[in-house]
């Protein structure tokens, strides 16, 4: 049974990704947790690259590893780190959370069971799936309305942030 180089890379990325995720949840120091999340994002980006979705891989790194993680780090600056580290690691609900997590893992495994596979018609005629060109063309032709309307989500969120954040001036 020959194992191709692609498979080796895949299993490395998958295993390292899962390990990073577990470490991110179990580390005491929140800063370490965030760094493990970074490692998780990078490995997931690697998986996307392996699947031929270069654009998605780039977005994963720019948006998740770049922007979202930075917000987490900013947020950590507001936290009392020594106190966080001293506190109990998990809340009282952790067995429940573990069950939900394992449940999702079970679903993911179950989908792999042969016979249940849904011969999901590989999106018709998609030689370039994931390439910037096909992605952009879908975004600006077929899906132009959702793309434009999404800006309203951002606008509502910005207005909301201003409303929540401003000081009441009238007394």
């Amino acid at each position: 049974m020959a194992i191709s180089a692609g498979q080796i890379v895949f299993y490395y990325l998958a295993a390292a990704g899962i390990a990073s995720a577990i470490l991110a949840v179990t580390r005491r120091n929140p800063v370490h947790s965030v760094l493990w999340v970074l490692s998780l994002f990078l490995h997931v980006a690697g998986l996307f690259l392996l699947a031929g979705a270069e654009f998605l891989a780039a977005v994963q790194i720019i948006v998740y590893a770049g922007a979202i993680l930075v917000v987490y780090v900013f947020f950590l600056m507001l936290v009392d780190l020594p106190k966080e580290e001293a506190g109990p690691r998990f809340g009282a609900h952790w067995p429940l959370c573990l069950m939900v997590g394992l449940g999702f893992a079970a679903i993911a495994l179950w989908v792999r069971v042969p016979g249940l596979q849904t011969a999901a018609p590989a999106p018709a005629a998609a030689p370039n799936t994931g390439s910037v060109e096909s992605f952009g063309s879908a975004l600006f032709k077929q899906f132009v309305l959702p793309f434009e309307i999404l800006s309203l989500v951002l606008l509502a969120a910005i207005v909301g942030a201003v409303v929540v954040g401003r000081r009441r001036t009238e007394a």
Binding site: L152, V153, A156, V159, G160, V163
Partner: peptide, 10 residues
């Protein structure tokens, strides 16, 4: 759903 929800949260 997101537009409706975000505005309503605020």
């Amino acid at each position: 759903l997101e537009i409706s929800s975000i505005a309503t949260y605020i």
